[in-house]
């Protein structure tokens, strides 16, 4: 009888231990799960600024914000695209003068990058872009005389700002295509700061804004960088807490003639597509317009001088050369994808 009582007690004790163990494991799992819990999110894509705009917002009752973000990109395009009749840039190109504090701000930032890059980046490159017309049905390989003539109209020093007044030299053609998407990301960030959203990741044609937090644990945002030679693959991932990511590559718009690739990233100093062994540059920094301008400037400058420019602005940069060798510069958390 005593033996039976002891056996029963032992069984009860062991059962309790097992139950406690199961409860503990499940509790740990749910604690882990709640710490990693995702916010509600809404994802929306649309076409604006002549490209794909994707807004993914995180928080409670999100949705209207996505519409506002996409509409704001469309409205901005109406202000700064040279293709839009009556836009600020259209007026500047036609009359060589515009009074606009927004445009003045853009030009001030860009002209500083132009100066710091020794002219490797230049908003007045429009006459060259129009001559090459890369990515359009009129694309062609211009002759040296045509390039020399177009180069006469290129020069950021003639694009001047005085307060809110912006002026340029007659015949110059201003194109904000290199920085418009990044500037849109800056505007979106200003809007998000006044919203109730917990976080958002916005892509304006590949220029990225990562804002706030993606989940309750505050995990970093993961931005994939396109493989420059395979549009369906990613060469790696950049992890950031918040900020802007822009990539410039020779694969976006190009044509080939006699086995040579002529891409859209023109060197404003020579008039020809930059040829320095790079095929892609990604810049990570705390300003959308700067990340756009720096990715273009660094691509044109090449790896060594580009790295110096990125460091001057405290930006992180990822340089990919034609052999797909990757060099990172500055404080950038980049992980190459497994092959």
């Amino acid at each position: 009888m005593l033996k039976n009582d002891n056996t029963k007690k032992k069984v009860i004790l062991q059962s309790l231990l097992v139950a406690a163990l199961i409860t503990a494991i499940i509790a740990v799992y749910f604690l882990y799960s709640s710490s990693k819990a995702e916010y509600d999110s809404v994802n929306k894509s649309a076409i604006a600024m002549g490209t794909i705009v994707t807004a993914k917002t995180y928080g409670e009752n999100t949705g209207p914000e996505n519409e506002i973000i996409i509409n704001s990109v469309k409205q901005l395009d109406e202000l700064i695209s040279w293709r839009q009749e009556g836009s600020l840039v259209d007026r500047l190109n036609k009359t060589n003068f515009v009074n606009s504090s927004s445009l003045a701000d853009i030009v001030n930032v860009c002209n500083k990058v132009s100066k710091d890059s020794g002219g490797a980046f230049d908003l007045t490159v429009g006459s060259l872009s129009n001559l090459w017309a890369i990515g359009t049905e009129n694309e062609k390989l211009p002759n040296d005389d045509e390039i020399a003539n177009a180069l006469k109209k290129v020069g950021y020093k003639s694009l001047k700002v005085n307060g809110a007044e912006v002026s340029c030299k007659k015949g110059q053609f201003i194109d904000l295509g290199a920085v418009g998407k990044g500037y849109a990301c800056d505007m979106i960030k200003t809007y998000l700061e006044d919203s109730e959203l917990k976080g958002a990741v916005v892509s304006v044609g590949g220029s990225i804004l990562a804002y706030g937090k993606r989940n309750k644990a505050g995990d970093k945002w993961r931005i994939a960088v396109r493989d420059p030679r395979d549009e369906k693959s990613y060469i790696g991932t950049v992890k950031i807490n918040e900020g802007f990511v822009s990539t410039s590559g020779d694969y976006e718009k190009y044509f080939e003639k006699d086995g040579k690739r002529y891409h859209h990233l023109l060197d404003p100093r020579t008039g020809y597509p930059a040829q320095n062994g790079l095929i892609s540059v990604t810049v990570v920094c705390d300003s959308g317009i700067l990340s756009d301008a720096l990715s273009t400037a660094c691509f044109v400058l090449g790896k060594e001088k580009g790295a110096e420019l990125a460091e001057k602005y405290g930006a992180g940069a990822i340089f990919i050369d034609e052999n797909k060798n990757i060099t990172t510069v500055g404080d950038v958390d980049f992980e190459r994808a497994s092959k």
Binding site: S207, A210, R214, W221, I223, T247
Partner: peptide
């Protein structure tokens, strides 16, 4: 777009 409710790879693509 191809999407997944539980995409664990990345949040956006820079291109």
């Amino acid at each position: 777009s191809i999407k997944s409710g539980k995409d664990k790879n990345f949040d956006a693509v820079a291109y």
